[in-house]
Amino acid sequence: MAGSVVSVAAAPPAPPQRPRTLLVGTALTACTMGFAIFSMVGLYLARRSDVLNTGQKWLPKGAVIPLPQPNMMFVTLLISSVTLAWGAYALRRNDRRNAYVALGLTALLAFAYVVQATYLFSISGMAVDASAGQGVLFWAISGSHLAMVIGGLAFLLLVTLRALFGSYRQSPEGVTAAAVYWSITVGVYAVVWYAVYITK
């Protein structure tokens, strides 16, 4: 090939990809990550129950879990899952402009979630070494979910960039996989939101 002038257009097309592989792999991975967080939530609830049964308060002195931030985070994630579905739908219809707007908006919302979460952590006042293990559990759960969201954000940015560079013309499977991952992330947050932030 060296030295020859070869057009990409003249090259044989890439063989088609087998559909659904990426989607199933993504679903398995995201469900596994989600179950890891569920397991931590189980430990959290068990410990909380043990502490309450002894007549003590669950949240240690000085720690606070306000409601507005977790609620806004939940709303942000819900909206982002809608915009991502919009992006995948637009790509399926080859409506690139709408797809770019939707994917960009989703990434922005995901970033907004990360900012809100870090703000919540900064005001929570939860010490990691709280005497009954509350801090360890709180940070493990919320930190793991934040890591899951950051993973999703990276996935989103990757598919958005690929879409911008012309990929997903035949099948938006990559974007759909990102949407699958994101939906599971939102579902996991719903559990964390209720178990950790609402019931406290």
Binding site: G34, F38, S39, G42, A46, I184
Partner: peptide, 21 residues
Amino acid sequence: DHLGYGLLLGAAASSTTVGSF
């Protein structure tokens, strides 16, 4: 037992999600 209950529910949810795919 909250832990066992939560884990069983979480596993059920995860398994059902994969099943739905």
